[in-house]
Amino acid sequence: MSLFVAIFPPEDVRRDLASSVPGIRSRADKWHVTLAFLGDADPALVAPALGQASLGDPFTLRLTGGGRFRSVVWAGLGGDVASLGALRDRVVGCLAGFPIDDRDFQPHLTVSYRYSASILNGLADYAGPEWWVRGVSLVRSAEGTYSRIGEWTLP
């Protein structure tokens, strides 16, 4: 089991990406932008910390372009990425003391765990619809299944 804090694009945004870029086989309902990976932290302790945080105001994002990390192919993010970075900083700040992955924040949405030149090429000119980020989710991942165990809205 692992725990993470994420943003999930709305269904119409995921549907647009899936229909615009041929060859994507991963499940669109699992597509998310990870803000903080917490490993095996106790959700009963993480949830109250998130619940007390001031997360900031809603902002807009869009999926645009793409790239890869080794074999992973991802969609990039456009729009108010400065607010996304600030939200990530607030999430990490309120979870100080928890075992958060300390890699540099490189916001992306993973679409394939296996490299595919056709998917990467399809993402090159992709610019999806804009959406409002209105909250974050605390997610438990166990054996490939994601369960949203808490959600917090931006005021």
Rank of each mutant, 00 (worst) to 15 (best):
C94H: 09
P107W: 06
P48F: 15
G79M: 10
P22I: 14
G76R: 03
R15C: 03
S141E: 02
G65H: 05
W31I: 07
D57R: 15
L154R: 06
A47N: 01
L55R: 13
P9V: 14
F8M: 13
G93H: 08
I149D: 02
L123G: 04
A124D: 05
P22V: 11
A82R: 15
L77T: 05
G56P: 02
I119H: 01
R103P: 00
V5A: 12
G23P: 03
R25P: 11
D102S: 11
V21Q: 09
G56E: 04
T60E: 15
N121V: 06
E143H: 15
L63V: 08
V81A: 12
G66M: 05
S26R: 11
D16W: 07
I100V: 10
R27L: 12
L63N: 01
G66P: 00
R68F: 13
L63T: 08
L109D: 02
A44T: 12
S26T: 13
V133Q: 09
D57P: 13
D57W: 10
E130W: 05
F37H: 10
L17R: 10
C94E: 04
Q52A: 15
A53I: 05
A6K: 11
E143I: 07
S147D: 11
R15H: 15
H32G: 04
W132T: 15
R90K: 07
G135L: 03
G56W: 03
G93I: 05
F59K: 01
I119A: 00
S2H: 14
W74K: 14
R25V: 14
A53E: 01
G93Y: 00
L17D: 01
Q106A: 11
F105K: 00
G122S: 00
V136P: 01
A36E: 02
G122H: 00
R68E: 03
L138T: 01
A96D: 04
S118I: 09
I24C: 07
V73G: 08
R27G: 03
V33F: 10
S83L: 06
P129G: 14
L109N: 01
L50E: 00
W152N: 00
A82V: 14
R134E: 14
V133Y: 13
S71Y: 05
T34L: 10
A127Q: 15
L84Q: 03
A47G: 08
L123E: 08
S118C: 08
T153D: 07
S137T: 10
S137D: 07
E11A: 12
S141K: 01
V133K: 14
D104N: 08
P48Q: 02
V91L: 09
R70P: 06
T110Q: 13
R14S: 13
T153V: 12
L3H: 01
G79P: 02
P99K: 12
F8Q: 03
A86L: 06
F69L: 10
Q52R: 15
R148G: 04
P22L: 14
L45G: 14
T110M: 00
